[in-house]
Design a protein around this nucleic acid. Structure first.
Lengths: 335, 335
DNA sequence: GCATTCTTTGTAAACGTTTACAAGAATTTT
DNA sequence: AAAATTCTTGTAAACGTTTACAAAGAATGC
C-alpha cells in the first residue's frame, strides 16, 4: 500500500536529463532528439513510472473527467450508452463521472452545482427537462445533450424519433389497422413530443383520425404500460393497435393485458421504441424501433471531447439512424 | 467559458486573512475562532468560491475517485448497483470511474493497469473471474468485491446466494415438484457455484436425485436461457421445474418455451434469481429471489471509503439479506 | 568565417491546495 | 505578576506536473 511510486524526478535522474525533457518526451516527442527519447523511455520502463494525472490536470487547468447526468441511473436503457461513453473516454485517459439528476432534491440545482463545481471539463446531459436557464450562455463548461434535447441550441446527439414513429404507424397501417392508439411518455418530454407529433402526422397522412382517448398517458416505465393496459381493457371502443413511446411501456402493457386475459397480437397489436434486450424474449416478441445506444454513447463522448479540446461551448449536433425491427407483436386486426 | 473562478487566494483577500486560515475554516473549523469563521464564510459566499478538488487531491496525495470494474456494463443488472455507488460517493465528493473488464483484450491486464494507474484511491470489483495473483498483497489500493468474490480474503459485499437457492428449491418442492433442473451461470463463476451447490444440497435434503442432464449450461444471459429452453423442449425426460441462476436466463427460458408452444407454469415451473424489474411484467410473472442491488452498491461504497480513510487494504465482509418473491411462474406439476 | 536560423535542452515559475512549524495573543495557573 | 498553557493565526514548503523563456550547439546561407 505504501510502495513508493516513481515520479518524473526519478525518471529524469535515471535518464540523466531534466524533468522538462521527460515531460516533453512523453507529451510532445517531436521536439526531443531521437537519442534522448530512447533513453528517457528506457528510464520510464526501468522506474515503472506512471504519470500522476492529478498533478498533470492541475497544471493544465483541467480535470480530466466528464460528468454524465442521467435522469435515472437505475433505468437499464442507459447501460449501453454508458458503456459506449466509458470506452471512448478511458481510451483518451478521461474519467467518467456519473450522477443521477432525479435522486436528490432539486434537479436544476444539481445541474448548476455540477456545472460550477469544476469537477469536470464537460457534461453530457440525458435529461431534457432541466432548466435551460441554467445552461444559458455563457456556460462555464461544454455541454452536450444526448437522446433528449432542449429548445435552445445545445449540441446534441439524438435519434430520428419522428422517422421511428412514422415507421411504426406505417407498419401498423400496412397490417390493416385503422384504429391506433399511443401510449405516451412524460408530458413535456421532448422525446415524447417528437414521437407523438410524428404519430399524429402519420395517422393524418393515412387519413386516419386521432381519437383523444386513445392517447394514453405514461412515463416510459413498465408500470405506466401496465396502467395503460388496464385502461385499455376497460374501454368499450378499443383501438386495435398501440404504438408505445418506449419498449418498457410496451412490455408492461403486453404483460398486463395478458394477465387480464387478452391476447397479443390477436386482440391488440403493439409496437415499442428503443429495442431493449428483453423485447426479443417476451411472448410475443416485440416489434420495435432500434436506437443504436452504444453508438449514441460513443458519439456523445467524441463530440464532447472535441468541444473540450477546442475549448468551445458550442459544437455540432448529430442525428443517428434508427431501424425498424419487425417481430411478432403485430398482426392483422381481428376483422 | 473563461469566467475567472475564485481561488482560495481571493477568499483570503476578501476576508483579510491568510490562505491557511481559509483552508482551515473549510476543512477543520474547530481550530478557527468563531469570528474568523464567519468572515471567511462570508467571503466564500461573496466570491462564489468552490474548492479546486484537483489541487486539493494533489496536495493530499489522493485522487478523490474510485473505480468500479464491472464484467459487462451493458448488463442492466448493474444499473441499480451503480446508482447506489454513485449516490454514496458523490455525497462525500468522490468521483466514480467506471470501466468494463470484458470490453478490452486482456481483463487481467486491465485490472493490473487500474490498480497501478494511480487514477483512483480504491477499486470495486464485480468480476470474480479475474486473476487473484494481481490482487495479492501487497496491493497498491484498497479493493472490495461486490456480488462476486474470490477464494482469497478480499473484503466483499455479497448476497446470501446459498439461502436463495435453498428457498427456490423448497418452494418448488412444496408445490409438489420432484424433478427439478438448474440453468447454470458461467462455469467457474462463484455465484453460479454457490447457487448450484446449494441447489444440489437442497435437493438432497428433500431426498431428491440430481439428474446430470438436468443441469443446463448457461452464462446468465437471456440468450442462454433461450438456448436451455430449446434443449429442454427436445428432452424426452423433462424436469417439471427449473431453477435459473439468473432472472435474465429465466426470462429467456420462458420466452423461448412459449415461442415453441409450451406453457409456463402449466408445463414447466420456473424460479429465477435477482428480481430484475421486467420479471413482474412478463407472463407469467416471474417467481424469484430479490437481491437488494441498490443497497449492495451503497454498502460497497461505504466499506471502501472506510478502508480508504483508514488507509488499509483489508476490511470487513458483509452478506446482505435476500428475499423470496412468489409470483406466477410456479404451479403444481401436471400430475 | 561570420551572421542567421533551427534544434535541443535546462531553469524556473506556475497550477491551487494542505499542513508542519513558529509565533503572537489570550487565558489560566501559581 | 510571572510562568505556563492554550488558542489562533501566518509563513512557507510541499504535492508532481507543464511550459514560457533562455541558452547553447548545430546547421545553413552568404
Amino acid at each position: 500500500m505504501d510502495k513508493k511510486i516513481a515520479t518524473i524526478q526519478d525518471v529524469a535522474r535515471a535518464a540523466g536529463v531534466s524533468i522538462a525533457t521527460v515531460s516533453r518526451t512523453l507529451s510532445k516527442p517531436s521536439v526531443v532528439s531521437k537519442a534522448t527519447q530512447t533513453s528517457v523511455l528506457q528510464a520510464v520502463a526501468d522506474t515503472g513510472y506512471r504519470i500522476n494525472t492529478t498533478a498533470s490536470n492541475l497544471r493544465r487547468q483541467r480535470t480530466g473527467s466528464v460528468i454524465a447526468l442521467v435522469p435515472n441511473l437505475a433505468n437499464p436503457f442507459f447501460s449501453q450508452i454508458l458503456a459506449g461513453l466509458s470506452s471512448v473516454l478511458t481510451d483518451v485517459g478521461f474519467g467518467l463521472l456519473i450522477a443521477d439528476t432525479q435522486s436528490g432534491t432539486d434537479p436544476d440545482e444539481r445541474l448548476a452545482h455540477y456545472l460550477a463545481s469544476g469537477m469536470a471539463d464537460g457534461l453530457i446531459l440525458f435529461d431534457g427537462t432541466l432548466s435551460q436557464a441554467v445552461l444559458e450562455r455563457p456556460r462555464p463548461l461544454p455541454v452536450i445533450m444526448a437522446c433528449e434535447w432542449m429548445p435552445g441550441s445545445l449540441p446534441s446527439i439524438t435519434a430520428d424519433n419522428r422517422a421511428g414513429a412514422e415507421m411504426a404507424v406505417d407498419h401498423l397501417v400496412a397490417f390493416g389497422h385503422r384504429t391506433i392508439g399511443y401510449i405516451a411518455g412524460p408530458v413535456g418530454n421532448v422525446l415524447n413530443i417528437a414521437r407523438q407529433e410524428a404519430f399524429v402526422e402519420s395517422l393524418t397522412k393515412h387519413s386516419l383520425r386521432v381519437q383523444p382517448d386513445w392517447i394514453f398517458e405514461g412515463d416510459f416505465s413498465m408500470d405506466a404500460g401496465a396502467a395503460a393496459a388496464r385502461r385499455w381493457m376497460a374501454m368499450t371502443n378499443k383501438p386495435t393497435a398501440l404504438f408505445c413511446a418506449s419498449d418498457e411501456m410496451a412490455v408492461g402493457f403486453i404483460g398486463e393485458v395478458q394477465h387480464l386475459g387478452a391476447k397479443v397480437p390477436d386482440d391488440v397489436s403493439v409496437v415499442g421504441f428503443d429495442n431493449i434486450e428483453v423485447g426479443k424474449h417476451i411472448t410475443p416478441a416485440l416489434t420495435t424501433i432500434r436506437q443504436p445506444r452504444n453508438r449514441i454513447g460513443k458519439r456523445a463522448a467524441q463530440l464532447l471531447l472535441d468541444m473540450i479540446s477546442a475549448s468551445s461551448i458550442s459544437g455540432p449536433s448529430e442525428v443517428v439512424d434508427i431501424e425498424f425491427i419487425s417481430r411478432a407483436s403485430v398482426a392483422h386486426p381481428a376483422s
